[in-house]
Amino acid sequence: MTINGQTHSHDVEPRTLLVHFIRENCGLTGTNVGCDTSSCGACTIHMNGESVKSCTVLAVQADGQALTTIEGLAKDGVLHPMQEAFRQNHALQCGYCTPGMVMAAIGLLDENPHPTEREVRLGLEGNLCRCTGYHNIVKAVLAAASN
Protein backbone atom coordinates (compact mmCIF):
# COMPACT_ATOMS: atom_id res chain seq x y z
CA MET A 1 0.00 0.00 0.00
CA THR A 2 1.05 3.60 -0.22
CA ILE A 3 0.86 5.94 2.73
CA ASN A 4 1.29 9.63 1.98
CA GLY A 5 2.65 8.70 -1.43
CA GLN A 6 5.31 6.31 -0.15
CA THR A 7 5.15 2.57 -0.59
CA HIS A 8 5.05 0.51 2.60
CA SER A 9 5.29 -3.25 2.58
CA HIS A 10 5.46 -5.50 5.63
CA ASP A 11 4.48 -9.07 6.44
CA VAL A 12 1.80 -9.01 9.11
CA GLU A 13 -0.67 -11.37 10.69
CA PRO A 14 -4.17 -11.15 9.14
CA ARG A 15 -5.57 -9.90 12.45
CA THR A 16 -3.32 -6.81 12.47
CA LEU A 17 -5.49 -3.70 12.56
CA LEU A 18 -4.62 -1.02 10.04
CA VAL A 19 -4.04 1.55 12.80
CA HIS A 20 -1.41 -0.70 14.41
CA PHE A 21 0.20 -1.30 11.02
CA ILE A 22 0.45 2.45 10.47
CA ARG A 23 1.79 3.20 13.94
CA GLU A 24 4.00 0.20 14.63
CA ASN A 25 5.11 -1.17 11.27
CA CYS A 26 5.37 2.17 9.49
CA GLY A 27 6.29 4.32 12.50
CA LEU A 28 3.66 6.95 11.72
CA THR A 29 2.38 7.70 15.20
CA GLY A 30 0.23 10.74 14.42
CA THR A 31 -2.80 8.48 14.02
CA ASN A 32 -4.14 7.72 17.50
CA VAL A 33 -6.16 4.98 19.16
CA GLY A 34 -8.74 6.33 21.58
CA CYS A 35 -11.20 3.50 22.10
CA ASP A 36 -11.94 -0.20 21.66
CA THR A 37 -15.39 0.25 20.19
CA SER A 38 -14.96 2.09 16.85
CA SER A 39 -16.56 5.16 18.42
CA CYS A 40 -13.99 7.92 18.91
CA GLY A 41 -12.57 8.62 15.45
CA ALA A 42 -9.04 9.39 16.77
CA CYS A 43 -7.76 6.80 14.26
CA THR A 44 -9.40 8.45 11.21
CA ILE A 45 -7.31 8.39 8.04
CA HIS A 46 -8.16 8.55 4.36
CA MET A 47 -8.32 5.42 2.25
CA ASN A 48 -8.59 6.19 -1.47
CA GLY A 49 -9.70 9.69 -0.50
CA GLU A 50 -12.44 8.73 1.96
CA SER A 51 -12.34 9.06 5.74
CA VAL A 52 -12.28 5.70 7.53
CA LYS A 53 -11.63 4.53 11.08
CA SER A 54 -8.33 2.65 10.77
CA CYS A 55 -9.02 0.68 13.96
CA THR A 56 -11.94 -0.98 12.16
CA VAL A 57 -10.08 -1.99 9.02
CA LEU A 58 -7.62 -4.87 8.83
CA ALA A 59 -4.20 -4.02 7.42
CA VAL A 60 -4.77 -6.76 4.82
CA GLN A 61 -7.96 -5.01 3.66
CA ALA A 62 -5.85 -1.95 2.84
CA ASP A 63 -3.41 -3.99 0.77
CA GLY A 64 -2.70 -2.09 -2.46
CA GLN A 65 -4.75 0.96 -1.49
CA ALA A 66 -3.69 4.62 -1.24
CA LEU A 67 -3.78 5.99 2.30
CA THR A 68 -3.24 9.46 3.71
CA THR A 69 -2.50 10.11 7.37
CA ILE A 70 -2.10 13.35 9.29
CA GLU A 71 1.65 13.30 8.53
CA GLY A 72 0.87 13.56 4.82
CA LEU A 73 -1.00 16.87 4.97
CA ALA A 74 1.64 19.56 5.42
CA LYS A 75 3.63 20.28 2.27
CA ASP A 76 7.18 21.71 2.47
CA GLY A 77 6.65 22.87 6.02
CA VAL A 78 3.40 24.66 5.20
CA LEU A 79 0.35 23.43 7.10
CA HIS A 80 -2.69 22.15 5.21
CA PRO A 81 -5.45 24.83 5.26
CA MET A 82 -7.47 22.67 7.67
CA GLN A 83 -4.51 22.37 10.06
CA GLU A 84 -4.00 26.13 9.81
CA ALA A 85 -7.70 26.74 10.53
CA PHE A 86 -7.48 24.52 13.63
CA ARG A 87 -4.45 26.55 14.74
CA GLN A 88 -6.08 29.93 14.13
CA ASN A 89 -9.31 28.95 15.88
CA HIS A 90 -7.77 27.24 18.91
CA ALA A 91 -9.55 24.05 17.87
CA LEU A 92 -7.50 21.83 20.13
CA GLN A 93 -6.83 21.47 23.81
CA CYS A 94 -4.92 18.28 24.66
CA GLY A 95 -4.68 17.45 20.96
CA TYR A 96 -5.44 13.74 21.23
CA CYS A 97 -8.50 13.82 18.99
CA THR A 98 -6.96 16.39 16.62
CA PRO A 99 -5.37 14.18 13.94
CA GLY A 100 -8.62 12.26 13.53
CA MET A 101 -10.71 15.44 13.62
CA VAL A 102 -8.57 17.08 10.94
CA MET A 103 -8.76 14.01 8.68
CA ALA A 104 -12.52 13.69 9.18
CA ALA A 105 -12.99 17.42 8.57
CA ILE A 106 -11.03 17.32 5.31
CA GLY A 107 -13.09 14.31 4.21
CA LEU A 108 -16.25 16.19 5.07
CA LEU A 109 -15.32 19.23 2.97
CA ASP A 110 -14.31 17.00 0.05
CA GLU A 111 -17.89 15.68 -0.01
CA ASN A 112 -19.62 18.90 0.97
CA PRO A 113 -17.41 21.96 0.30
CA HIS A 114 -19.81 24.50 1.83
CA PRO A 115 -21.52 22.91 4.81
CA THR A 116 -23.81 24.67 7.25
CA GLU A 117 -22.86 24.63 10.92
CA ARG A 118 -25.35 21.81 11.48
CA GLU A 119 -23.87 19.81 8.62
CA VAL A 120 -20.41 20.21 10.14
CA ARG A 121 -21.66 18.95 13.51
CA LEU A 122 -23.39 15.99 11.86
CA GLY A 123 -20.44 15.34 9.58
CA LEU A 124 -18.10 15.05 12.58
CA GLU A 125 -20.40 12.86 14.67
CA GLY A 126 -17.95 9.99 14.37
CA ASN A 127 -15.25 11.93 16.21
CA LEU A 128 -15.23 12.52 19.94
CA CYS A 129 -13.22 15.21 21.73
CA ARG A 130 -12.84 14.35 25.39
CA CYS A 131 -11.73 17.91 26.13
CA THR A 132 -15.12 18.83 24.60
CA GLY A 133 -13.68 21.57 22.42
CA TYR A 134 -16.36 21.04 19.79
CA HIS A 135 -17.30 24.68 19.46
CA ASN A 136 -13.92 25.82 18.19
CA ILE A 137 -13.53 22.70 16.07
CA VAL A 138 -16.75 23.56 14.24
CA LYS A 139 -15.56 27.17 13.90
CA ALA A 140 -12.29 25.97 12.39
CA VAL A 141 -14.02 23.73 9.84
CA LEU A 142 -16.37 26.54 8.82
CA ALA A 143 -13.38 28.88 8.50
CA ALA A 144 -11.52 26.37 6.34
CA ALA A 145 -14.64 25.98 4.17
CA SER A 146 -14.92 29.70 3.59
CA ASN A 147 -11.26 30.07 2.52
Binding site: T44, K53, T56, V57, A104, G107, L108, E111, E125, G126
Partner: peptide, 9 residues
Protein backbone atom coordinates in the same frame (compact mmCIF):
# COMPACT_ATOMS: atom_id res chain seq x y z
CA UNK B 1 -26.36 4.73 9.77
CA UNK B 2 -23.51 5.49 12.17
CA UNK B 3 -21.25 8.31 11.01
CA UNK B 4 -19.47 9.32 7.79
CA UNK B 5 -16.54 6.98 8.39
CA UNK B 6 -18.88 4.04 9.09
CA UNK B 7 -20.91 4.80 5.96
CA UNK B 8 -17.74 4.80 3.83
CA UNK B 9 -17.00 1.18 4.80
Amino acid sequence: VGDNQVRHR
